[in-house]
Amino acid sequence: MGGLEPIIIEEQLYITLWYLGENDTIQKIADRFGVGEATVTQCRNKILKIVLKNLKKKFVVWPTHEEMLEEENLFAARNGFPDIVGALDGTRIPISKPRDHPQTYVNRKGFHSIQLQAICRHDMRFSHLYVGYPGSVHDARVLRNLYLWDVGLQRCNMQHHVLADGAYPLRRWLLTPFRNNGHLTLREKKYNKYHSSIRVAIERAFGNLKGRFRRLLNLQTHSVKTACKVIMACCVLHNIYIIQGDVDLADFLDDYEEPDEILHNHLIQERVYLKEIELQMLSCEITKVLV
């Protein structure tokens, strides 16, 4: 392993999960686990490589025809909006100032970031992912540059649809809300209301993702390549946890930005407990790959 201290795979997983789940520095993580800083980085890189090479293609997949019919029914159960199989949106992940072309990564809010664009199912599982465009690039431009732009209709079996907000262009397979010009009819307002209540699935998915993997709240790396790997791996793990029936604590955790000492200790205990559950889940999947 090029100098990596001999550590069992479970320990490497735990180190990586801690790295992804917290905003601790590499030095602090190394102190917590009693290893060198280089070991933390090498453990992270090894696990990320396994996740992206072996687990991404298994757990991030476009729904089959049968699954689309199921998604259509589950989305429609919310308010009757028919033929929907996903919700699309983009979010920007803060990163440190990149070494190359840093200005292109500055988004409209003024910080360096990388664009994550995704489509999710009714249960917040990602069915399509793209990571890598600089934060200054508009959501619609990202979509137009993706393969999905040309094959979206075929992917939706010529009859289903994905919902997106007004930042995206209207397509036969991609439905956006009516622009509010102050003269919307009652029917158009009702459409927008139902549209919004379905589209919230992708907003909740991003909230869940960032609530669990708090590294994504401020990904302190100057390497765009490393940042993309971390973001994509977090999305894969997000899907694994949902498939395994893990609980959603993102809303609970986000309610407390400045907890008192007692609550802070409670949250730390909860996160340690979650990591133990996550470790068991992920160990099973990693072991299948390594055997």
Rank of each mutant, 00 (worst) to 15 (best):
I47N: 02
Y273F: 05
L249K: 08
R32T: 13
L153T: 04
W18K: 07
V131C: 06
M1A: 11
K229P: 01
E5N: 01
A201W: 04
E11Q: 14
C120E: 08
T287F: 10
I277C: 11
A77R: 12
L4D: 06
V61E: 09
I119G: 11
N45D: 15
D248Y: 10
N157R: 15
G80S: 05
V60P: 08
A140S: 15
E22M: 00
V61H: 10
L267V: 15
T221R: 04
W62L: 12
F252L: 15
I50C: 02
G2Y: 08
R271Q: 13
K53R: 14
R271A: 04
F252S: 14
K275A: 02
H122W: 08
R44Y: 01
L148Q: 12
G166T: 06
L209A: 02
T39L: 05
R215W: 01
F178V: 09
Q103S: 14
V40E: 13
V60R: 08
T16I: 03
A205V: 05
V230W: 02
I9C: 01
K193N: 07
C284A: 13
D246S: 14
A76Y: 02
Y191H: 14
L163S: 07
L290M: 12
P94Y: 05
N157D: 13
Y241Q: 07
L186A: 14
A250L: 05
K58M: 04
K193S: 14
Y194T: 03
Q280A: 14
E66K: 00
S136Y: 06
Q159T: 13
H161R: 09
